[in-house]
Nucleic acid binder design. Structure first.
Lengths: 215, 215
DNA sequence: AATCATGGAGAACAGTTGTTAACTGGATGA
DNA sequence: TCATCCAGTTAACAACTGTTCTCCATGATT
């Protein structure tokens, strides 16, 4: 934040960005374990060997993409779970926020959904780590709620993971909906359908939460 | 089922099996979009060109694997959701059955989890199709239950999808648990942890289902 | 017994891959 | 101003890829 980057490091970060963006683009139609380093550099218009100045391997680049795709999401999670009055309003807000995020960063979402169980171990672990952080944060937020009285820590974490997984399911559902309608305004009603589905599923979970303690 | 295969077709199916098995093995450490046809034939000990006698491409082989991994699962689903008295017993049974299945066919489960959002479109669609069938079957089974009175078709399908997704989440959780403990009996307590987690999540959903109609 | 059908082998193709090495030119810091 | 640094280039490497075409051995068919 203090002193401007030298023109040197600025250029470096610029091609690093180009590499990340090109990779993310290429990963829309294949998975990381088949992404070639030459493929990426070719897309950027740079020599293959330049790749090594930034990443050790494509797996390394993948880990960087995970941080970028999920790392910036933490504040959003927190505010989402927090700011709302009624439970129903909170759910509506959350689903809408997911829809908006998928629409804004579809490539990031696809990448995460694809590589969460993908063929590259370090990337899988990076994603798992970030999702665990999410679950911990959601749990902390849930614990503040009055409804959390009488809940064990274990049960709160159980519920958090349920929420996080449901979040991902919903996100990739929105993704499918909007890529199925790549050439038309069919997207609107598909989006609506997914919104209704996800909202009701969240609501059902929410109801289960309300009645968790009475047997 | 009637007349025995000629010795000719028998041999063909034998190498076809070998190709499928070899591919499934190789796919434990990579994803389908990076699986080479030569790689598979090499593992089987057969000429590269022999591959074309059985599959058009590795994507084609992938679709065949989907049918094999999920196609044989339908009767199991049906009996699971059906046969049980109390709701709790049904849940315990279901989770146990998932654990057993993951333990018996880990490579199949990993393949499905990996390729559900993987980089090969035909395979993704094959999986989506099979999961949609599952959801329909679960819905049909739920509709028979007395608890389904007053439920709309839409809501029943919503709940079915929730169950199916939760099934998959649980399966890949069991998978991680048993591959994290590749060299030891740590697996036992990890398995137990996942079992407890999955059971409580299912129970919470079940509770939500009970109270769905009273607002 | 003679013909046909077919699963698999073999060789060759143009293209691709990751990685190494030595080099260049412009920004950096003394 | 001059020596140093370093992001990016060029060239070359052995190894690998999917695909085509020709051929063979043998089971199936008549």
């Amino acid at each position: 934040m203090s002193h401007t980057l030298g023109i040197r490091q600025a250029q470096k970060q610029k091609t690093r960005r180009a590499l990340l963006d090109a990779a993310l683009g290429l990963l829309e139609e294949q998975s990381l374990s088949s992404l070639g380093l030459r493929e990426v550099t070719r897309a950027v218009g740079v020599a293959p060997t330049a790749f090594y100045r930034h990443f050790r391997s494509t797996a390394d680049l993948g880990v960087a993409l995970v941080e970028e795709a999920l790392g910036s999401l933490h504040p959003m999670i927190r505010t989402t779970v927090t700011a709302a009055d009624s439970s129903d309003e909170r759910i509506t807000r959350a689903v809408e926020l997911i829809a908006r995020h998928v629409h804004a960063y579809p490539a990031h979402v696809r990448f995460i959904a694809r590589e969460r169980h993908g063929g590259v171990q370090p990337v899988r672990e990076a994603i798992r780590g970030q999702l665990a952080r999410f679950a911990e944060e959601v749990k902390a937020e849930l614990a503040k709620d009055a409804e959390a009285e009488g809940w064990s820590d274990d049960d709160l974490l159980m519920l958090s993971h349920l929420y996080v997984d449901q979040m991902l399911v919903t996100a990739s559902l929105f993704l499918e909906a909007q890529e199925a309608a790549a050439g038309g305004e069919v997207s609107a009603e598909e989006r609506e359908r997914v919104t209704r589905l996800a909202t009701r599923q969240m609501r059902l979970i929410s109801i289960g939460r309300h009645h968790w303690l009475d047997h």
